[in-house]
Design a protein around this nucleic acid. Structure first.
Lengths: 135, 135
DNA sequence: CTTGACTCTGTAGTATAGTACGGACTTTAT
DNA sequence: ATAAAGTCCGTACTATACTACAGAGTCAAG
């Protein structure tokens, strides 16, 4: 099995070279062996690992959480349950974010309804709202 | 009309003293006059301004956008329409964020449905999903 | 063999929105 | 009068996730 250079890993995983090095510094991927020249030699497996990180990020996990998952995973005592708990927590997390955004949206919609977009800025109900002294 | 110290403005607006100075550096609030001692002397109006900033932030505007609104506002040629456009854009913005989060949530829900939380981590369908080589 | 592409290291910068600190000075309350 | 609280400034640090750069060395193709 031949090894990959950092550039190849990056291309195969769809990220930049600097991202790979960054993940290494963060402990998300192991320090690979080097050639005499100092060039990193990655096993194919690294591409899978980087893709894992990307997908997890797309699911809203932070690098810190992903790191945790990766560590859980290599521990033979970890059960599927523990991963499930993480995913469950993330779902709750995301639901909260959605709710918060929906509230904001409703406020904006209300404001937009009161503003016809006519008249000078001094009479803009949106700014008036923002100016309210009482919450 | 007596003036306020930075600490009073901060308390009245519900932020920290450092935040006021930060907003000043960012050009969100004007540099106030000083006493001979160098102490800042804020007009009451500043409290309203800081609250405006806070409320706009709660509506999802960034400081940069808020700055833009504040500048629009002091320009006598600005119409209500221009503010409305900003609010409209922000609404679209937030709707997009909500949609993105909802997608993520759906993916998580699907994953959770396939995982009973039993068995070793080596058989966890969530990790399997994250491992998929093909997108 | 040369040229261009790639990689190395370490440091610094990006964006966002603040927060913290140290040492000196000022104001307020007792 | 003294002590506590507040304020000054400039700088540096926080978190997140990268991205950029300089200057040197290495690798692969023609």
């Amino acid at each position: 099995m031949q090894s990959l250079t950092i550039g190849k890993v990056a291309r195969l995983a769809g990220v930049g070279v600097e991202t790979i090095r960054f993940y290494e510094r963060q402990g998300l991927i192991a320090e690979p062996p080097r050639k005499e020249s100092g060039y990193r030699q990655y096993p194919q497996q690294t591409v899978v690992r980087v893709r894992f990180i990307r997908r997890a990020k797309e699911l809203g996990f932070t690098l810190k959480e992903i790191n945790e998952m990766l560590y859980l995973r290599i521990d033979p005592n970890t059960t599927c349950e523990e991963i499930r708990v993480l995913a469950e927590a993330k779902k709750v997390d995301i639901e909260e974010k959605i709710r918060a955004l929906q509230k904001i949206k409703e406020a904006l919609v209300k404001l937009l309804a009161t503003c016809e977009g006519r008249g000078p800025v001094s009479e803009c109900p949106i700014l008036d709202f923002l100016d309210q002294v009482e919450s």
